[in-house]
Write a protein that binds this DNA or RNA. Structure first.
Lengths: 349, 349
DNA sequence: CTGAAAGCGCTTACAG
DNA sequence: CTGAAAGCGCTTACAG
């Protein structure tokens, strides 16, 4: 069958197998297997004997064989949204860190797939082979994304958990930040600071992240009877250039709002840059706030007042929930977990 | 054996197996297997029959079974250096994008492991199980890192390729940016602009990335007989705060250099911020340049003159080289590939 | 071109 | 507590 096991590119001697260890200690393979992966079901002395032999011989189990046999891969597949030419979003990266740490802790592997939300042909998941992962973690997946990549519970045939975006209506357990509440509090802060004419800068009006944030903004405005006087700008993109574009619209206004809440830190930075270039002072002429609390937010000039999300914690919680579902510890019921955000006051607003 | 196949968390019907397809078309499993993974070795009509049945029945192969049988996982393991509490370096992220794209193109999976260079106990690789990946891609691994994580050709038992850092002396094929040349050209540019007293800002004097960059800086200085008059500052960290620290030392100087080359963009941004706060003008009082050409470099105020590295391309080339070695297309000889850098002129210098 | 058989390296009921 | 056996779902020389 595979006498030429190990490709031409390999280095080193052939791997030690379970059978080799068994032979060396004079025990059956089943006993050795148990001693290694189910130590309590074996005589303590046997256990020790086997474990020492395994260590001495440099035995490590074969992942494919084990998975094939017991039906679990102890690997999770993480789907991160591609932004085309642009680098992966720093927010997603931070969630990923949490996922790595938790997966590591539980000795799970993490397989990553970058998926293009717009590209219908990226059927990476429609034909997801079996035996590759026990579950799927979707980070910041849009509805379109979920549909196009086959990230539905049925078509994947694997449990799915969504992070950062709420897909409980698709029967997918989701862990999100309290985006609406975050913007509600930020808006409160702006109103308390005396602002009466506010603006909101979004990227696309119906984007997954824009909807709850804008809702929180409007809700707070309504509570102070200010909802009729606000303005909403569209940058068109969730990044620095998007903020610049929005700032142009802002500058063109005859009667400008005195405070603007941006959908993200990157957008806020672009907005600030443009209004500063136009000679305005931030926050004196216009207060500008962001959302995300990226590493760079503290270093911006002026430093950004923003909403901090527990990205790392969402990653940890997501990995844990998914693994618990995979192992049957938790049911796959479409629960929604909302993690608290916190307002970070700095110079820009 | 595994009658309870599929964990309690799974969704959907049991997977279709090769044998199911075989039965449905009245052919042997071997023929079906060939028709699907080695189409040329089968009668065209048979092929079509099988492929249609497979599609109709929603068959996808089982990755574990296939790997176990043919000895290849078609997966690469990527080791990215952990920065502790900090987010993964944006440079590494961009390399990763290239890796994803190329792996995808070749239908390879990408398994990620974040490894802590300082943490000796992170023996993630020492006990790397077989059947998990065909090769390892190490991104920006330091020597210490490689040693501690068992990333040596012998101990991993798998081919390794190093990206961004040169480990050919450890018999590891490496793909790096022309860092020395990049700084040589940047320094040329500064000298041509009339600067005669220059400074270099490093993070740690013997860091993998500092050595070649500083060497390029010094070499160019020497060519103009300027090597005795330069200053080197240490920020201690490869980030914004590191640049701030270095700027303090700079400001304390009685006779200050007129141009400073920083080891990275983040460091340059910190440096600029601090000297601006001290009332200096950039580039008029002091010209400051970075290295990396991060997305934010263009948005900094002033925008950064810097050295651009082909990070995405290095990722693509790295994945391709590793896969070629795994499949035996290329030998695992410790070749060194040096990708060209380019000087990006903006406002800061 | 196709089929029957052996084998990849594990795990896990089932006996004892 | 341990062993013998069957089985996970594929692939691939080997015959025909």
């Amino acid at each position: 069958m595979n006498s030429t096991k190990g490709n031409s590119g390999d280095a080193g001697a052939p791997r030690v197998r379970l059978a080799d260890v068994a032979r060396s200690v004079g025990l059956n393979r089943s006993t050795v297997s148990r001693a290694l992966s189910n130590p309590d079901r074996v005589n303590p002395e046997t256990r020790k004997l086997v474990q020492e032999a395994a260590r001495r011989m440099g035995y490590t189990f074969n992942h494919s064989a084990r998975s094939l046999s017991n039906g679990r891969t102890e690997t999770i597949l993480v789907a991160v949204p591609s932004r085309g030419q642009q680098s992966i979003s720093p927010v997603v990266i931070d969630v990923l860190r949490g996922v790595f740490d938790e997966a590591n802790r539980q000795s799970y592997g993490v397989l990553i797939r970058e998926a293009n939300p717009g590209d219908v042909s990226s059927r990476a998941y429609c034909a997801l082979p079996g035996g590759i992962a026990d579950g799927i973690l979707s980070i910041s997946g849009t509805a379109q994304h979920m549909r196009h990549t086959g990230l539905t519970v049925e078509s994947a045939g694997l449990p799915i958990v969504s992070l950062l975006t709420n897909h409980v209506s698709r029967q997918i357990p989701s862990i999100v930040a309290a985006e609406e509440q975050g913007l509600y509090e930020l808006t409160s802060y702006l109103i308390d600071a005396g602002h009466r004419k506010l603006a909101y800068v979004s990227c696309a009006p119906d984007s997954e992240h824009d909807v709850p944030r804008y809702r929180g903004f409007c809700r707070r405005l309504a509570e102070s009877g200010l909802e009729d006087d606000h303005v909403a700008f569209m940058g068109g993109r969730l990044d620095f250039p998007g903020g610049v574009v929005a700032a142009e619209s802002f500058l063109a206004l005859s009667e400008r709002p005195t405070a603007v809440a941006c959908v993200s830190d990157e957008v806020a930075m672009g907005f600030i840059r443009r209004v500063k270039d136009a000679g305005l002072q931030v926050p004196d002429d216009v207060a500008v706030a962001g959302y995300d609390d990226l590493a760079g937010a503290a270093y911006n000039c002026p430093s950004l007042t923003t909403v901090s999300q527990p990205t790392y914690e969402i990653g940890v919680a997501g990995a844990r929930l998914l693994i618990d579902i995979c192992t049957g510890l938790t049911s796959a019921s479409p629960q929604l977990v909302i993690m608290p955000t916190t307002l970070v006051r700095r110079e820009s607003a």
